[in-house]
């Protein structure tokens, strides 16, 4: 879905980070009006904060939006890197944030080479220049100094000052900052600062309702309707255990994994055991309880 040209000789395709376009339509099943909201925000240059638990489809949504926004209306898509008529480039730059992600990792740094130093743009700079959707995944994980970096990008200025080179980059018109954030963490200090938060509109994601989730699981994993149905039910039941010992409920992603194993012929109970139960918790009692639920649901 998110890769291109399987025709090529090599087994992989390499892009410069800002060249990466979502070429094929990613599967995304809208639940509410999130697509309209995102489109409107994109047009209005309003940064977007995606909130929601693990594996409920935030990243997929962004990919889908990148594809959707880059797609011209009424143009048949073909393979290839050339832009078709009416197509605009909306590359997607995804950065997974982590505790050691520094500002210069994002903005860029001087490198040494044989002739002295050379400036290398970081992914954020490149995205700003290329007019991409910059997606900072799990933004709370990043160091606080990096979150400050995005401030000038997220208000009316839409600029990225680069201290080291003494320059300021104005964002391309198509640039949009999008961050994701999982409010489920209990660590009080892993919270977004209000000065940061209030620069975004927030779209809340949650696990899809069972019927839609069934649809998603079936579509994504290729398992039978019955299995997808049962998996959605299992997911729903397991989520009931959040706060009763389980830190986070089973994500849609996990359910899909289980579904995939099933479509490969793994017996359902076993599939949900390895894909869901053991993944979710190490607590033997919880494991046993979830397995009992799973054994009630699957024959």
């Amino acid at each position: 879905m998110v890769e291109a040209s399987p025709e090529t000789e090599a087994h992989f395709t390499e892009y410069a980070i800002e060249e990466f376009l979502v070429r094929d339509e990613p599967y995304y099943r809208p639940i509410g009006d999130e697509i309209e909201l995102f489109t409107a925000a994109y047009r209005q240059h309003i940064p977007v904060l995606l909130k929601g638990p693990t594996g409920c489809g935030k990243t997929r949504f962004v990919e889908y939006m990148a594809w959707q926004l880059g797609r011209p209306l009424a143009v048949v898509k073909e393979q290839g890197n050339e832009l078709k008529e009416g197509e605009i480039r909306v590359p997607l730059v995804t950065i997974a944030c982590h505790e050691d992600l520094t500002a210069s990792d994002l903005v860029g740094r001087y490198l040494l080479d044989a002739n002295g130093t050379r400036w290398i743009d970081g992914p954020m700079t490149r995205a700003v220049k290329a007019g991409a959707i910059l997606y900072l995944d799990e933004v709370v994980e990043a160091r606080k100094d990096t979150t400050v970096l995005i401030h000038p990008l997220t208000d009316h200025r839409r600029i990225l000052p680069i201290e080291k080179t003494g320059s300021i980059i104005e964002a391309d018109d198509r640039f949009l900052l999008c961050v994701s954030y999982n409010p489920g963490y209990q660590s009080a200090l892993k919270d977004l600062k209000h000065s940061t938060r209030q620069r975004f509109i927030s779209i809340e994601f949650n696990y899809p309702p069972p019927d839609i989730e069934t649809e998603i699981i079936q579509r994504e994993s290729g398992c039978t309707k019955e299995h997808a149905d049962a998996l959605a039910k299992l997911g729903d039941k397991i989520r009931n255990l959040e706060e009763h010992g389980l830190q986070e409920g089973a994500s849609t992603r996990l359910l899909i994994y289980a579904g995939r194993l099933m479509s490969e012929g793994i017996p359902p109970r076993r599939a949900s055991q390895v894909a869901i139960v053991w993944t979710l918790t190490d607590d033997p009692e919880l494991q046993r309880s979830i397995e009992e639920v799973s054994s009630s649901i699957f024959e």
């Binding site: 009931n240 255990l241 009763h244 010992g245 009692e285 309880s289 979830i290 639920v293």
Partner: peptide
């Protein structure tokens, strides 16, 4: 305890 969680889940 197992049944409790089971019932809660359901």
């Amino acid at each position: 305890s197992i049944l409790r969680l089971y019932c809660r889940a359901l």
